[in-house]
């Protein structure tokens, strides 16, 4: 897909109407998007501002937000227990995060003996209302086909090697639940404040294809 319009930044005004000097659509599908956008606005189904607001909302949900949740779970055992028990309620009440109505969210915890990794073999189900849009590899047939059958080989491709005495639980998001992995807190981080711990929590560690980063690396 070719699209050279990379001029946007997070500082742009919330409503950014297409300007006349914007590059024309570059593919059949870009023409279709533009046609649908224009028609939906002209027929009053949506306003252009709705599109901008939705794009801004989606960008406000990103791995940094997930990392805050994980770091809090690492440093507040009561929060951790409530998160594991009822993620929707706990995130709403204690972090003012609304996980939306499209699916339920469930948090699962990695330990010394148990490692979760999340996949959606049927499409691309992902906790996007917490972590944002999924990475391209998560949506690929390569990851989706292999993660359920050979998770250890797949994890190794991500540079993650687990000892054989750590059991793997592959979570196939087949229905109405989305999964957030709480990675195992790295050793050597005792006493670290939450904001310092957040830097150790990568997106992939919340999918389960990576571990939380080593504290020596930060």
């Amino acid at each position: 897909m070719q699209n050279n319009d990379h001029g946007h930044t997070h500082d742009e005004p919330e409503v950014h109407a297409p300007s006349p000097d914007e590059p024309p659509p570059a593919s059949e599908w870009e023409f279709l998007e533009k046609a649908l956008s224009e028609l939906l606005v002209e027929t009053g189904v949506i306003e252009e501002a709705d599109v901008q607001r939705m794009m801004n909302f989606t960008e406000s949900r990103n791995p940094a937000l997930g990392a805050k949740v994980v770091a809090r779970a690492w440093t507040d055992s009561g929060f951790r227990d409530r998160l594991l028990c009822d993620a929707r309620k706990t995130l709403r009440e204690e972090m003012e995060i609304d996980v939306g109505t499209i699916a339920e969210l469930e948090a699962v915890e990695n330990t010394d003996k148990l490692h979760h990794v999340v996949v959606c073999t049927l499409c691309s189900c992902y906790p996007r209302n917490l972590l944002g849009t999924p990475p391209a590899w998560y949506k690929s047939r390569e990851y989706r086909s292999r993660a359920v059958r050979e998770p250890r080989i797949v994890l190794k491709e991500f540079g993650t090697v687990l000892p054989s005495d750590v059991s793997i639980r592959v979570l196939d998001s087949t229905a109405d639940l989305r999964y957030l992995v709480i990675p195992k807190r790295p050793g050597g981080t005792e006493g670290w404040p939450a904001d310092r711990l957040e830097a150790l929590v990568s997106r992939d560690s919340m999918i389960g294809t990576a571990l939380a980063s080593d504290p020596d690396s930060k």
Partner: peptide
């Protein structure tokens, strides 16, 4: 596609 093999990621 679960369980098939589409190769390197």
């Amino acid at each position: 596609v679960g369980g098939l093999d589409f190769g390197a990621i």
